[in-house]
Amino acid sequence: MPKRDRWDASNGAGAPAPAAHWDEAPRVRALIAAYDGVPGALLPILHALQEDFGFIDARAVPLVAEGLNLSRAEVVGVIGFYADFREEPPGRHILKVCRAESCQAMGSEPLTGHVLDRLGVEMGGTTPDGAITVETVYCLGNCALSPAVMLDGRLHGRVSSATIDRLIAEARS
């Protein structure tokens, strides 16, 4: 199921700490309240949480469930289903490397190897200094300028090993 690079993800099955004593709970509740009356608001809420916190804290799950009148299992199921939602904080920068067909035709596999070598991590991993998380993405819609990567939401096309080195250096500086 579409949770790439993280096949062993536990999907937050471990019981979260009681939310009542979590300092961030009011912030989360306020964020959920902003979607009051919006039909099918779970994905927008999860995106907003991740935008704010960088990941979906397990302690937010019962608050979201309560706010939307869902079971915790339903919320956890949705978080686990979509590749975007993280259950742990990522690195300070997120590098997504496209590995779909168009980029394959322009050397994305050697390029991916170069990225992983440079960063010294496995796909899906974060560098030990916490600077960069690297992930697989299937298509960034830049297929006429393959191979493509996205660094912190910014698209790069016709990417070479040299481009990667420059992007990594900039992210680390």
Binding site: P2, Y82, A83, F85
Partner: peptide, 9 residues
């Protein structure tokens, strides 16, 4: 406008 979440399906 709604945002997907990284699922091709």
């Amino acid at each position: 406008a709604r945002l997907g979440a990284g699922a091709y399906i």
